[in-house]
Write a protein that binds this DNA or RNA. Structure first.
Lengths: 238, 238
DNA sequence: AACGCTTGGTGATCCAGATCACGCACCGCT
DNA sequence: AGCGGTGCGTGATCTGGATCACCAAGCGTT
């Protein structure tokens, strides 16, 4: 099964901007071949669920095109978004390696495409190719760092303003200019932003107003413009 | 260098209650020998710091005797305790594997003893022994799950009462009786409890009073007695 | 045009928990 | 005994953000 656009894991590696850093880039020839044998590619519409929190792990997904949000919910329906993944990210790795249920729900935020590697094939690869096991260990420890950063944010940064400022900074870290300005397309609703920083939609609305009034940011259509990242950094002192 | 009590990693494995589950238990003979060559053992007094948040990773520590608290602080001095480790736990693993600074501070809560494996030796072991790399990957993914649980608690469980109830349950999960009762020695100050559940000392004091009044728990000297875990579970609905 | 639906803005109210400010008990010390 | 240090209990006060309750704007559908 071959997806449109002619993309697959290896092709993607050649073209992707962070080439070489990804889990499956620059593998030995035999490992690469093996990978191509066991993977399958599929396209997903917006709002498609790659997997759902609590399900037994079927395998890992390598996101090729599109963004996906990872979220957890409590029984009462409160939801937090723990990460927004985009192309190149590996989803479901922890669940597969430790053979526990998926700890998050992965939902496409826009139409996209992902490679799937079934659990058993993946675990066999780990055994057969030490290089893969090593990469996986490193990827897991990166995931851990991300999770830890999240803990710091949730546990230490008290006010919604701080968390909001942090979020804006993380969004604009890639497009930042030397003078501290930056801009980024806003693709989320206020509701989703609220689920990321752990507050309510109303508060997010007010934060947008407040930050605009304080000249920390402005909107040009759907594009968010930051005047000075420095000012934002002063707000989040954790 | 040989520590008192005649304990080392391998000895410990033979006697420790969760034998076989630990990172370095039941390794092949050669891997075990290698481990014994590169490790060194040291004793630590109460309040000793094994390593401090932000330091470059020197190596991993395997806690043999005593408890250690892992914590992170913000610049303003707010501190959260993310985990209380006890014997058998591996500390500093993530930092060493990913070669990033230690993400937490590890401080002994009581006098104890730990084995140390220098960074380079450890990474060589990972390369030379696929079995070790596999174990490490699994350990990392367990760490990740723990971190994720923490995120859920911080992000979803709103009230201090909920978090406090969760904490009590986690403390007593090992000594729980069939009828739901349990007891555990309380070794922390209210201040430390506050740093775990992310609130203030005063609130923790009031929670203790409140839970006692509601017959959820009682103190017998330094021992905490739970009447019914079931009642606590009803409180934390996340 | 009229509708349903999602998303965003904003005022009014309320309350849990942070903060401040004590006093008290306990323990090791000289 | 007297003293300082640490940990605990509790009242009084204050406030940030959740909650509730609307309304308005945009947009696809019929």
């Amino acid at each position: 099964m071959r997806a449109p656009y002619g993309l697959n894991i290896l092709d993607n590696c050649v073209t992707c901007p962070v080439r070489g850093e990804h889990l499956f880039c620059n593998l030995s020839l035999t490992a690469g071949q093996r990978l191509n044998e066991v993977k399958s590619t599929a396209v997903y519409p917006k709002s498609a669920m790659l997997f759902i929190e609590g399900q037994q792990p079927r395998g890992v997904f390598v996101l090729c095109v599109g963004k996906a949000k990872l979220s957890t919910s409590s029984r009462e329906g409160k939801t937090i978004i723990t990460k927004v993944s985009d192309s190149g990210d590996i989803l479901g790795l922890n669940a597969v390696v430790s053979n526990r249920p998926y700890e998050v729900t992965a939902e496409m935020m826009e139409p996209g495409q992902a490679n799937f590697i079934p659990r058993d094939s993946f675990l066999h690869m780990l055994k057969d190719f030490p290089e893969v096991a090593m990469r996986v260990a490193q990827q897991l420890s990166r995931n851990y760092y991300t999770a830890y950063e999240e803990i710091r944010t949730l546990g230490l940064a008290v006010s919604p303003s701080e968390k909001f400022a942090k979020l804006l900074l993380s969004w604009t870290s890639k497009t930042a200019q030397d003078d501290g300005s930056a801009q980024v397309k806003l693709t989320m609703t206020h509701e989703e932003v609220a689920e990321i920083i752990g507050t309510t939609r109303e508060t997010v609305s007010r934060l947008f107003s407040e930050f605009k009034k304080k000249q920390l940011m402005q909107m040009k259509g759907a594009t968010l413009v930051i005047r000075s990242r420095f000012a934002l950094e002063k707000i989040c002192q954790s």
